[in-house]
């Protein structure tokens, strides 16, 4: 299974991250190897096997509906590079 540059750019749009040509040259082989390895799983017989989502077999873990103190606004916004009027500043959305 060959992976094309066109497919890569589709993924880049979805993930909102780009690889430079140099980076892709460096990582292409790893990506292709990973893909080949993933394809190899097809050979495993999983007929009738349920998927495992988590190794922890818990159910119904819930909390009571009680308000607890959260973060102070200044404390939270201090982590952001751009804020305005108590909000996170977002460049225009196209």
């Amino acid at each position: 299974m060959e992976f094309s540059a066109k497919e890569l750019s589709k993924l880049e749009v979805l993930a909102r991250v780009n690889l430079s040509e140099k980076e892709w040259d460096r990582c292409r082989a790893a990506f292709q190897n990973a893909l080949d390895m993933a394809v190899s799983l097809q050979a495993v017989d999983t007929e009738g096997v349920e998927p495992t989502i988590s190794p922890m077999k818990l159910v119904n873990v819930m909390r009571e509906d009680e308000i607890r103190p959260g973060l102070n606004r200044d404390e939270a916004l201090a982590q952001a590079m751009e804020t305005e009027s108590g909000c996170y500043k977002v460049p225009r959305i196209l």
Partner: peptide
């Protein structure tokens, strides 16, 4: 109409004052 949010214990009530009901969970920290 719960008192708190779905996944954290911040108040779920409406507030005009922005970012008053926030915590690491609902900020995705």
């Amino acid at each position: 109409k719960t008192k708190t949010k779905l996944f954290c214990s911040c108040a779920a009530e409406f507030s005009d004052d922005p970012n008053r009901h926030i915590c690491p969970v609902c900020l995705g920290m």
